[in-house]
Each structure stands twice: as structure tokens, then as C-alpha cells.
Design a protein around this nucleic acid. Structure first.
Lengths: 232, 232
DNA sequence: CAGTGGTCTAGACCACGAT
DNA sequence: TCGTGGTCTAGACCACTGA
């Protein structure tokens, strides 16, 4: 018996050690919570907290009655933080700049309207803006805001504050989808981001909802060479 | 007062409702755990579970003594699941195929050795493999395995099983880094993935460690149009 | 110093689901 | 059916940190 195991972090560490040392093999069942609690001399709730945490991380598979097993194919979970772009730039120690390039209210084109679930009569606000880091182009934002859901956006000062930040402060959302992909820079992107032709650009698409209605749809096109990283 | 609030999910839902309804504004402090427990008629631990969960999701900021506040700039956390490619393909309902294209053991080139922390005398195994979905190229895998850490890899059957899956089963890792970016397809990628020239390809770079030593370094280059999505 | 969140405990009941 | 994890409770002590 090693040092005292009393808190959930040390239980988790000990479980990790056993998995890593192959004492508990991938696919194998591990003792149940009550037995582990007895072995470690702590409460079952403490063991539960540790194991639940590891299961959320994908290292354990837990099922009632079937027990807890070491995951066979631990699915890596990469948690990406997607901050407001201003904070992302400032976090790199660069000076942030913002320039609104286009702003137009009106019915969106059919494919946008369909993706956002806006009918023909509905109105949307289209914004195109450039985010700068130390005066250099950093990312291009192309956003549609559903004015049926956020009417106040029609008169919001988007020449001073980015759509992202204004919406965060004024239009909460309940859930959303996010997607990452790579695209060849089109003419507009080449001009705005001052990148060579051809360029491969990293793109983030986001669609956010308030209950059943789309609040906003945005595509962020990052400058060439952009990388999004995280610990695993 | 709505229906009874007894479990942490309903506490969380109620807190979300209040944030969303602007009863608790961004930046504002909310009541402490004990008060909320009294209001909801449940134990403090239940409130704690709900609020801790929301804090992990980035919607609340919690600090001892300072209390709990509604986050000013809720950082969106996108959790990407990075499964084994075989499961990713099969999950789309396609048939998975795998072809080893190159395999060579020896000292890695300087930039790879540096990234992996291998000295001049160290040996590595270089694998290039193609993953197929319904016979079509799906992703190109370019992997370096540190033979100093995983000597058994030298004789592993990588013509039958992908480096990813073999390593998961035989070489546990303690932590890693992952990065996503976009690249212009080079000649090798164009040939292997059968994509037009030029193409923008989505790339995943991963470096995994066992304690202090790099286990493997891999770059997965996905076929054109690949998108990685997740709920928000 | 004192208020707040972080955690542990011992016990209890329940929901799920494998057999 | 009944073993297992999921959760709740009431109470307690502690760690951190703002005032």
C-alpha cells in the first residue's frame, strides 16, 4: 500500500497508474466502486468521482450492472477553447484591430436562409469584418444574424464591436454546432487576408441556436498558416 | 416556483434558465451554494454538482470567497472526439480499408528528431499509410514511432493494422498535443488522395508522450472537403 | 479574519440492464 | 432478478482569498 489515498485526485492517479502499468488491461473489468473504496479506505462517493472523471475522459467504460472496464479504444477527446477573437489575439500578446467591411440588412440568399431556417419574408443582417493582429489581417468573419430572433442587432454598432462580442452580450444561445475544415482561398479572402494564390485556409463554421431558432451563422476564415492546438 | 428541483440536472436547468432569461446578468454574482440549496430544497452537494458542471462548461466563474458569477465572455468549449480512423469510417456507414505504403526504420531527419526529442543515435520507425472508405482514399497517415520507447514496434504487423490501433493496444501514453490546420496538397498527397491540384486539405498533427519521452508523432492529412464537427 | 467554494463521509434509495 | 453505477442527503472540515 502506497501513501494514503484519501481524495479523488489521488484515487484517479492510482487508477491511471494501474491502467498505465497494465495491471488493469484494456478491455478488462476493474473492481466495483465499493471494493475500491474499501481498498483505498475512502468513501464510495470519492471513488465514484474519480472513475466518473476518467470515464468522461474516455479512458473507462462504465455501465450499470456490467461494471467498469478499461476502454479498448480510448477515444481521444480534444477540448478546444474558442474564445472571442479579440481575446485570442490579445492572448498572443498582439494588438487587436477590427474593421467592418460590409453591412447589409435584407433577406438572405436561399442557401443561407435554408441553413438558418428563415422563411422568404424573414430578414437577416449580413456582416463582413476583418480582425487584425498588430495591423496584419488575422481572420475574416462572414456573419448572418437572424433579425427575427435578435431585432436589436439592426441598429447595433458593429463598426465598433465585432458581431461575436455584441451577440455574446445581447443574444444568449442555448446550443450550437461548430465545424472545422480547410478551403482554397477565394478572391475575396486573398484580398482581405493578403495571402498568396493559391492558399489553404483554416475555416471555422458556427451555427448557434436559441431553443428552436437560429440566432446566427458565421464563418471565420483564418489567415494562412493558422493552427488550432490543444492539449490531449 | 416551478416543479420540484431535486436533482443536479434540474438545478442546472434552472440556473441556465435564469442566466438565459437575464435574471442573472453576465458578470453578476449569483447566490451562494447554501442559499441556493435552501431555495431549491436540496442538499448543497447537489447545487455544487450543478454549478461545478456549468463552470467547467465556461458559463460560470467561481472563486472561493469571491463567489460565483455569470461569465462575461463565455468561452465556447468544443470537445472533439478523435476516434481511431477505422471507427470513424465505419461510423459513417462506410467500409474501411487500409494500405501500408512505406515502412522504414532508421534515424529520423533532423527536424523530426528535434520535435521528438530523439538524439542522433536514436532510432525511429517511419510509416506511411492510406486509409480508405469504400475503396476511396480517406486520409493519409504519416507517422514516426520512437523505437527507443516502443522497441516492439520494429516487428509489429503494420501491414495489417494501423499504427494508431497498434499503439493504442501496445503503447499507452500519458499526455499529448494535438493541432489542426489547413495545407495545400503536396505532390504526394495529390497522388495518394487522388485530389485536384491545387487542393486545401485538413490536417491533424498529434504528438504523444509517455511521461517525458515522445512515443509517436503523426500527421493525418484528410481528403478534400473533410470537415470535423461537434456540438457546442 | 471570515465567507465561499471544494471536498469527504456514511448511509441510503434508485435506475438501468445483463443474465 | 439483482448487481452495479448514479445520485441525494446532512453534516463536517478545509483551502483559498477578498476585505
Amino acid at each position: 500500500m502506497s501513501g494514503s489515498i484519501k481524495n479523488w485526485q489521488s484515487v484517479q492517479a492510482e487508477v491511471l497508474r494501474r491502467i498505465h502499468a497494465r495491471i488493469w488491461r484494456p478491455g478488462a473489468q476493474i473492481p466495483n466502486e465499493a471494493d475500491l473504496a474499501a481498498e483505498f479506505g475512502c468513501a464510495r462517493a470519492t471513488v465514484n468521482r474519480a472513475l466518473r472523471n476518467l470515464a468522461e475522459a474516455g479512458l473507462l467504460d462504465r455501465r450499470r450492472k456490467a461494471g467498469t472496464r478499461v476502454a479498448l479504444q480510448p477515444v481521444a477527446k480534444a477540448t478546444l477553447d474558442i474564445p472571442v477573437i479579440r481575446l485570442e489575439v490579445e492572448g498572443r500578446g498582439q494588438r487587436y484591430g477590427y474593421r467592418l467591411m460590409a453591412r447589409e440588412a435584407g433577406p438572405p440568399p436561399p442557401e443561407i436562409a435554408a441553413a438558418m431556417g428563415i422563411d422568404a419574408a424573414g430578414a437577416a443582417l449580413h456582416l463582413v469584418a476583418l480582425h487584425l493582429a498588430d495591423e496584419d489581417p488575422y481572420a475574416l468573419e462572414d456573419r448572418w444574424i437572424n433579425l427575427g430572433v435578435v431585432p436589436a442587432a439592426r441598429n447595433a454598432p458593429f463598426d465598433e464591436i465585432s458581431g461575436n462580442e455584441w451577440l455574446l452580450a445581447h443574444a444568449p444561445y442555448t446550443h450550437g454546432e461548430i465545424g472545422f475544415s480547410a478551403v482554397i482561398a477565394d478572391a475575396a479572402a486573398i484580398a482581405a487576408l493578403a495571402c498568396p494564390d493559391p492558399s489553404a485556409l483554416f475555416v471555422l463554421d458556427r451555427l448557434t441556436w436559441d431553443q428552436t431558432r437560429v440566432v446566427t451563422k458565421v464563418r471565420i476564415t483564418y489567415g494562412p498558416g493558422h493552427e488550432m492546438t490543444t492539449a490531449l
